[in-house]
Design a protein around this nucleic acid. Sequence first.
DNA 1: AAGTGGTCTAGACCACCAT
DNA 2: TGGTGGTCTAGACCACTTA
Lengths: 237, 237
Amino acid sequence: MPSAPLYKEVREKLLASITRGLWPPGTPLPSEAALSQEFSVSVGTLRKAVDELVLEKVLMRQQGRGTFVAPHNVDRTLHDFFRIRHEDGVSRFPQVETLSLRRQDADPPTCARLRLAPGSRVVRVINLLSIDSSPVVLDEIFLPAERFEGLTLDVMRKRPGTIYHLFQHRFAVNVLRGEEHVRACRAGAREARSLGIRIGTPMLEVERISLTYYDVPVEWRRSRVNTAHHYYNSELG
Amino acid sequence: MPSAPLYKEVREKLLASITRGLWPPGTPLPSEAALSQEFSVSVGTLRKAVDELVLEKVLMRQQGRGTFVAPHNVDRTLHDFFRIRHEDGVSRFPQVETLSLRRQDADPPTCARLRLAPGSRVVRVINLLSIDSSPVVLDEIFLPAERFEGLTLDVMRKRPGTIYHLFQHRFAVNVLRGEEHVRACRAGAREARSLGIRIGTPMLEVERISLTYYDVPVEWRRSRVNTAHHYYNSELG
DNA sequence: AAGTGGTCTAGACCACCAT
DNA sequence: TGGTGGTCTAGACCACTTA
């Protein structure tokens, strides 16, 4: 019966504290020396635990300043959570326009994906994303209503940063990873209208499940992407 | 003028030896103690260099056995270089049928993608991939002819393992990373015939550039994917 | 100047594999 | 049993940020 390595246990304790909301984004964790004392391990072991969390992008280190819960800034969203690139290869941040926001009962498939009890309420948001002033992506986002009390059209439209930055700061929902399923589909009436293309045009359907700590799902979205002048980028290996 | 950390230099030396073909896949590297002596660094520093190469999947460690150049087995191909999943979510290894192989002059775009001199020769391979006996993907692969002398239809068809395993062992070409660009397109006559779908059906076009050490491109491929019962999977974060 | 993380060392001991 | 990588420690010194 082998026990887990010490640094794994330390990692777990750190993660538990982070999940609990001790050390909100922006405030530094105690120093490595302090934490290693608190956990009665050597600095090397503490560092190995932090190394893992940094690799998972839960934490971020800054030499001379401290260690922080990784913030959801524009760069991170662009690099990790926005896969659409202009065909010229340059990756620009899209303008996001929230078209609608309302609360509704989740249908069974949505409940399943978000691991919610049947009949739970969800917030449904429609976003239109434009790149260089031309509309490219139509997003349909489903959020568990219980986690997003107080989310309104106004809050959505007046947020200063990215969506995930809003989630992190206002709702203490920290999106860490996600999985996307990509298929080809035809533009329906709605996509055709919003994106300025003909009905039936081939386009991408991208489904995303976003996960927070311990791989708990917190967002489900379906995007329709016009790939006439853009592509979906994916790294292998 | 800050100099690079010691472990970065050690990493470079190791990578240079690996690229040179010292330690072919299957034979272990010298032990960490031996290597640390050779480079006149502590074992900890040597380990940090190896850590990075393991993270990049250049090396693989096995406790009690040694450290090896990471082999291209079926699991690795399936996990890192095959993104297509059946809609039931299960990931099965496809049957690959090589339809054709011939050498030809590369057109300018292909030369650019593979960073070859204009007019270089390439090997063009057509593969049909089936999952559970139904054809799903049609691959068109371009390889720089100079690196793949001796690659024939027969070699392709009779290889025991994956394509990248063949590349690694027979041609000393080690594919490490890649980038894919995904778009929606319509099935043409060829795709329709090979995949048993109607002309004009929306499908995925996936372009891949595969890279070896120091990000040198060694393969360019364009795949057409029927996503009626399969999807393209992508991890975020 | 004081405090933070980053690098590097030397050595002990453990877990696993081959023989 | 001997050799391999994996864990853990203690401490020195460096690089960077802030005040």
